[in-house]
Design a binder for these strands. Structure first.
Length: 115
DNA sequence: TTGCTGACCGACG
DNA sequence: CCGTCGGCCAGCA
């Protein structure tokens, strides 16, 4: 009976849940989320989930998720040329050449902030 | 069903 | 420092 594609417990759903917990003005990495979910090796899936985040009813702050170097690797997926950067800058985050400045200062680690 | 892709990460030379 | 490769696994033609 079921074969429902709407597995609320799916990996994707968990990724969205964590992403929504990212505080305003903070960012995290795909790998950090993956590690928090217990699938560190599947960091790519986190990025893939973000690609489908637009399909979610609830808004997902995908712009607050970047790669481990703090580079806006997903900016091209936000439509526009630098929408992602503008969103982050509007939250007080400094960015230069697609690279977040003081990345360590604004980094939000779910492993440390959540239980 | 098989094969390729991908918003990543870590290791290696 | 830089380029390349393997692993991870869900979605799609």
């Amino acid at each position: 009976m079921k074969e429902n594609s709407e597995h609320e417990d799916s990996f994707f759903a968990k990724v969205y849940a964590v992403a929504r917990l990212i505080p305003y003005g903070r960012v995290t990495s795909y790998g950090a989320i993956a590690e928090y979910l217990g699938t560190k090796g599947s960091a790519r899936m986190v990025g893939w989930a973000m690609n489908s985040s637009h399909s979610q009813k609830l808004q997902v702050p995908a712009h607050r998720v970047v790669n481990r170097t703090g580079m806006l690797s997903g900016k091209h997926h936000f439509g526009g040329s630098n929408l992602m950067q503008e969103l982050l800058e509007s939250e007080g985050i400094k960015i230069e050449d697609d690279q977040i400045q003081d990345f360590d200062a604004v980094f939000w680690n779910p492993m440390k902030e959540l239980y």
